[in-house]
């Protein structure tokens, strides 16, 4: 990768993305189109998030990359290694508390984020109304008019059919009381963490060429009804490794006789707790 510009993208591309990011921050939750570039990995692997991260990071940043909460899966490792190669001087970490920029696929870390941290989401489909109205020109107009009746009807139909809202991930949110926004496919368990988070949250969708943002301390309300309030979903169990009863859990099949355990999806959080427990013993 030698011979490339710092953080891979050329300066003109970074400036274009940076201008779009500033406008995205000024209009929280609004999708801003940007000229997404071809990246050295396929769409669906986080090209939007990577371009946002590449436009934001500098040599004095510390980068953490997670994929479904884990630091050690293929997507996370390859993106972290990519930035270590194309951004000389950049430090990488697996510790949430040490990171200044965290790129994430489909999770928000369990450790509360603080001011000065930037959370970059990889977004496959930025348009929350996509499954209800596939025409872009039409959804743009619906956002302009703040006409989100379609989504309310969808939630109502979920309740009428299933007795509860059907989306366990990518549950739509209202940002700053104005724009309906896709939180990216994070579990609904993570939705409340977006509300008035101290960190800046940026979202990049490479294939769909959109980015958007939620500034710190901004109201992010999961869409619901007064008589059917939003309830974040979580598997009923404890982590088999660290014992946490309040973290988001993955179910792991352990044998072919129906054996299964729950473990924390956030590997850094789980490791910290295991270390603390061992130190206490």
């Amino acid at each position: 990768m030698s011979g490339y510009n710092f953080a891979y993208l050329d300066e003109a591309t970074k400036r274009m993305i940076r201008r779009a990011l500033l406008k995205a921050v000024a209009v929280p939750g609004h999708q801003v189109p940007f000229g997404s570039r071809e990246m050295p990995l396929p769409y669906g692997w986080g090209t939007g998030g990577i371009q946002v991260t590449a436009s934001v990071i500098g040599a004095d940043d510390t980068l953490k990359v997670i994929d479904q909460g884990a630091d050690d899966t293929t997507n996370a490792v390859s993106i972290r290694r990519f930035f270590a190669r194309v951004a000389p001087g950049l430090r990488t970490t697996e510790r949430t508390a040490e990171a200044t920029v965290i790129q994430t696929r489909h999770r928000i870390p369990e450790t509360p984020l603080r001011e000065g941290q930037v959370l970059v989401y990889q977004v496959p489909q930025p348009e929350p109304l996509f499954r209800l109205e596939p025409r872009r020109a039409e959804t743009r107009r619906l956002h302009a008019l703040a006409d989100y009746g379609l989504m309310q009807v969808k939630l109502y139909e979920d309740i009428a059919r299933h007795g509860r809202v059907g989306s366990s991930y990518d549950h739509p949110v209202m940002v700053n009381g104005r724009y309906l926004m896709s939180p990216s496919p994070i579990p609904s368990f993570d939705n409340p963490k977006m509300h008035r988070s101290a960190a800046l949250q940026l979202f990049g969708a490479g294939r769909e060429r959109r980015l958007y943002a939620v500034p710190p301390y901004t109201e992010v309300r999961s869409l619901d009804f007064e008589d059917h309030p939003f309830v974040p979903l979580r598997a009923n169990g404890r982590c088999s490794l660290c014992g946490a009863g309040d973290s988001y859990l993955d179910e792991v099949v352990t044998d072919d006789r129906g054996g299964r355990i729950f473990v924390c999806s956030d590997t850094d959080f789980c490791t910290q707790r295991q270390t603390m427990r061992e130190a206490a013993e």
Binding site: F6, L22, G58, A59, P216
Partner: peptide
């Protein structure tokens, strides 16, 4: 240093815009 200085200036403006 055009690359590094533009990045640090942008980060300051981004932080200013976000807060």
């Amino acid at each position: 240093d055009p690359v590094a200085d533009a990045q640090s200036a942008f980060r300051a403006v981004l932080e200013a815009m976000a807060r």
